[in-house]
């Protein structure tokens, strides 16, 4: 039997739709990726509040301090047994801010404390910051979703 020559040609697959969809998926994940998670400690369970609102604008100078219940502080993925060990980091941050004409009060100290931490330990950490003339604090909390516990 004689075969039709046209049948032996490889069939072309239209990839346009698949590529369109794949690029859309990539765009979606790229937009949602959160690089700020490097500042977050995995061990911290933040307290909940229904009034939690993400800051409207990011501060130019910010330090995110993670406070664990026993009083150790995690900053930039480095663990410090006590808040007073952060003094050189505070000084460096103040130097960086001053180079841009900012005052220490312009540096926002974001405290991410575990919900079981004694409040006194949070205040001790704030006192350490105050010793370095840092007085602009933000206590970070997690949004309480309505209807959830």
């Amino acid at each position: 039997m004689k075969l039709d020559r046209r049948q032996s040609e490889p069939e072309k697959l239209d990839l346009t739709a698949m590529i369109d969809m794949t690029f859309q998926l990539i765009a979606f994940f790229m937009i949602l990726i959160n690089f700020s998670e490097v500042d977050r400690s995995e061990d911290i369970e933040l307290p909940l509040s229904e009034l939690a609102k993400p800051p409207r604008e990011a501060a130019d100078h910010e330090m995110v301090l993670n406070l664990l219940p026993e009083g150790s502080v995690v900053y930039s993925s480095i663990s410090f047994p006590r808040g007073d060990k952060l003094k050189p980091y505070f000084e460096r941050k103040i130097r960086d801010a001053k180079r841009e004409g900012k005052e220490p009060a312009d540096i926002r100290i974001v405290i991410r404390a575990h919900e079981d931490t004694p409040t006194g330990k949070v205040q001790e950490l704030m006192a350490e910051c105050e010793k370095a003339s840092l007085s602009n604090f933000a206590l970070r909390v997690k949004e309480r979703v309505l209807g959830a516990q």
């Binding site: 939690a52 800051p55 933000a138 206590l139 909390v141």
Partner: peptide, 9 residues
């Protein structure tokens, strides 16, 4: 979602 409470010292 995370949010902040601003505290003055």
């Amino acid at each position: 979602l995370e949010g902040d409470f601003n505290i003055q010292m």
